[in-house]
Design a protein around this nucleic acid. Structure first.
Lengths: 99, 99
DNA sequence: CTGTATCCTTCATGATACTG
DNA sequence: CAGTATCATGAAGGATACAG
């Protein structure tokens, strides 16, 4: 019944949320480097959408050069269970390879 | 890391899977009636995609009129944990109303 | 460094009509 | 009953240039 897909449905939202939830605060370019293939434009768009949905908080420091920090909100942290269920499922489907 | 979004990302896939996983086998028009707003075209497409991803099984009975039954596969049932986590999150966010 | 503004392409969605 | 075929549309994604 939850239209969770609306919240995490974007192409980059899941990975963004997982980073912020499990690895804590990140700056814009940190996220950019951590997420392979994402462009500046798309990262901004998805972050704005997540912010509008109350899943990400954006903190701007009025410095030069500018610094902006992104953190997962309480609401996003409440999705941890779901992320972990996803992860468990993934591990079950793709058993770790022996080297 | 799982690109679970690819599997359940369609507009109707989540609801289809939840019905088949939690309520068991359904026929085509049963699903159609249970899912508000879905068209025949879209239901067919999403079911075909789910079938291709090994999440739904399609069983055709060579009768007249035709009968086709859809069931969730083992792979789909392994997503139960995730569905339940979604549900719990949803309930937490939208506390049941007192009448 | 962290954006915004355009513009363009692709793809999912869906309306409609027809079929065994 | 359970589809397929066709076509239209808009939203999502993304490349590029510019800005505070």
């Amino acid at each position: 019944m939850p239209d969770i897909a609306k919240l995490i449905g974007g192409k980059w939202k899941l990975i963004i949320l997982q980073i912020l939830v499990f690895r804590g605060m990140k700056r814009f370019n940190e996220l950019r480097r951590m997420i392979d293939g994402v462009t500046q434009t798309m990262l901004t768009k998805q972050l704005r959408a997540l912010e509008a949905d109350g899943l990400v908080e954006r903190k701007i420091y009025p410095e030069v050069p500018p610094r902006v920090e992104y953190t997962a909100t309480k609401r996003a942290h409440e999705l941890q269970e779901m992320f972990m269920a996803m992860h468990d499922w993934w591990v079950k489907e793709n058993p770790p390879q022996k080297k």
